[in-house]
Amino acid sequence: MARRPIFVPLIDGKRFVREIHVDFQWFPGFAKSQKQKSIRALHAMAREQYQVCNPLEVSSKSEDPMGVALSSFNLKFTTQKGRTFTVEAAFQGSKVFERGGPFIDIFEMEPKEAKRDERLRNSGRLTKFSFFKEDWPLEPKTAFYDWLYINALLKNPNLARKVTDIDGFTDIEFNPDRSINCQARAVALYCALYHNDKLEEALESPESFRSLYAGRISDPHEPDEVARLI
């Protein structure tokens, strides 16, 4: 057995994403086919236990082409200066450490190469993010990644339109015990902002976006290990 989160967009206007931790049968192995068996098992339990009717896996392991396209390794955006990056490379290249960064040459790398760049491991403690001279603090923890991802998604209008019909998002590779940022959570946040008509307001400025994370609450009707709300 394994436990992974599914991120559900909320439309109550006060909260944005419900994070449900789902227990399901895990199929070990590195083969894509094994990952997809695990995804099917996770989605089956999400439907059965939590009434998530139309879940989508957001990763390169997804059996849905839309889920593959939404992977941060595949999702690309073009800046006003005509430079095109993947979300993953832009995120990694924006990191600033005690002894270096941002390493903007990473922006041009393939996503796997970007993530494995030795400077990201050998430059000391992470201190902030800096994207085209706009600095982002480390708190709230997922704010910069979510902002970067949502802005990239909006530059892919076909995906941005289709994804709003989905009621839950997973990433089989994401383990909250080992990682912080998650592409599935970022998509769910986009959908919540869209359905609550708060997208334009949230993206007015970095400060507006970071304000979304102020005063996070826990649902008193859900135990902490089952759901967290942002």
Rank of each mutant, 00 (worst) to 15 (best):
Q34Y: 14
W147A: 08
S33R: 09
E98R: 15
P140S: 04
E108A: 09
A160L: 06
N156I: 07
N175T: 04
S123Y: 05
I166Q: 05
K32N: 14
H195P: 09
L56F: 10
F209K: 09
S211P: 10
A44L: 12
C191Y: 10
D146N: 13
L70M: 08
F91G: 00
F77C: 07
G67S: 11
K35G: 11
F144Y: 14
L154R: 14
W136G: 10
S38G: 11
V58F: 00
Q49F: 02
I180Y: 11
R83A: 13
A160R: 01
G29K: 12
E134T: 14
K32S: 11
P28T: 00
K115S: 13
F91V: 03
A184P: 04
L75G: 03
S218A: 14
S218C: 09
R161V: 07
F24A: 02
P5R: 03
N74E: 14
K112L: 06
A46D: 01
A152V: 04
R216V: 09
R116C: 03
F209A: 06
G168I: 07
A90R: 07
I39A: 08
Y194C: 15
Q25W: 04
L189M: 04
G29I: 03
K115C: 07
Y50D: 14
Y145A: 01
V58T: 05
N158K: 11
